[in-house]
């Protein structure tokens, strides 16, 4: 019982990282930009989320505003990196897959460089600790699973319906979808394709940065150069898995985090199981299998995904 409750509680808490990152990636892809650099942006966000609390109070309990400051800085720098990626793939119209790999290496390298020079080695922080919501957390089982998290978790879950509303119900969301589906038609109706794409990259980058900062502040509570460990790539894959729909992406994030948490929990609860590497592989194999059996979903995606738009080009 402990095993089940623990696994589910951690799944609810840790799903936030993947969820926010892939929600941001969805904004990018809806506008037609395939941002493989998500991993790098998350890495920088994760580093900044650690840097502010660590440099101000060290390993001790940081007051709330310090953690929030780290979170905000991570988000802002994520948005900036998104814009830099925009310069490469929107203004220069570079191939997005390769540029994304460049962005990933740049982000991970940058975070590693600053980490080594400002923090040195692996250090842990207290981060944002979880709190129990009065009354609700006293409900047996469900109370522990759903109502023992920090406020940030609830805020993050709130972002799912918000993202859905923004992308499907607001004029800006309509423009984003138009730009990702048929940029030329959107252009002829007076939508500034370049501007909308830059905006969506800033939003996506901000969310990736937020996800990274959340990872260090609430989940890992430490930082090292490899901390993201492929979560950025899984976030990109989740967008395919969720067929570019916020609610489905949300469910996908829960599923994958469940797979990841399950394997760590098995390692803790069943220590006699020796070949734990095979459990660690599980989420990654799951991604491949899901993508392989989901081939139809490729056609549901934004029609202009990955295609640079050039206004001057003859059709």
């Amino acid at each position: 019982m402990d095993f089940v409750v623990n696994t589910l509680t951690l799944t609810v808490r840790f799903a936030v990282t993947l969820m926010i990152a892939s929600m941001g990636e969805m904004f990018n892809q809806k506008a037609g930009i395939f941002n493989l650099g998500c991993e790098g942006i998350m890495s920088v966000g994760a580093f900044l989320g650690m840097l502010i609390p660590f440099s101000m109070v060290g390993a001790g309990q940081a007051p709330g505003y310090v953690n929030i400051l780290g979170l905000i800085l991570g988000t802002v720098c994520g948005a900036l990196l998104g814009l830099i990626f925009g310069i490469i793939v929107i203004t220069f119209r570079a191939p997005q897959g390769i540029a994304g790999i460049g962005m990933q290496m740049f982000g991970v390298g940058l975070a590693g460089t600053f980490f080594r020079s400002f923090i040195g080695g692996t250090q842990s922080i207290t981060g944002i600790s979880s709190m129990e919501i009065p009354l609700l957390s006293k409900i047996p089982v469900i109370g522990k699973i759903l109502f023992t998290h920090n406020p940030l978790v609830y805020f993050a879950y709130l972002l799912v319906p918000v993202a859905w509303y923004v992308i499907f119900k607001t004029p800006w969301g309509l423009k984003v979808r138009a730009v990702g589906t048929h940029p030329r038609a959107a252009d002829s109706l007076g939508i500034n394709v370049t501007k909308i794409r830059y905006q969506s990259l800033a939003v996506g980058g901000a969310m990736a940065g937020f996800a990274g900062a959340f990872l260090t502040l609430c989940q890992a509570k430490m930082f090292n150069a490899e901390i993201i460990g492929g979560r950025g790539f899984i976030a990109v894959a989740l967008v395919y898995f969720g067929q570019w729909h916020p609610i489905k992406i949300f469910l996908g994030a829960l599923l994958f985090t469940f797979a990841q948490t399950l394997q760590t929990q098995i390692q803790i609860f069943v220590p006699q199981f020796q070949a734990y590497e095979f459990l660690t592989m599980l989420p990654y194999i799951l991604v491949i299998v899901v993508l392989a059996f989901n081939r139809k979903s490729n056609r549901l995606g934004p029609a202009a995904l990955g295609k640079p738009f050039n206004r001057e080009m003859r059709v």
């Binding site: 540029a99 790999i101 290496m105 982000g107 991970v108 390298g109 080594r116 150069a225």
Partner: peptide, 20 residues
């Protein structure tokens, strides 16, 4: 005193610049 991770960042930078 420059961390060796700098080289990785430079490589990423080089990719970004080459494609552009």
């Amino acid at each position: 005193s420059v961390p060796p991770n700098l080289v990785k960042a430079l490589q990423g930078l080089i990719i970004l610049i080459i494609v552009a």
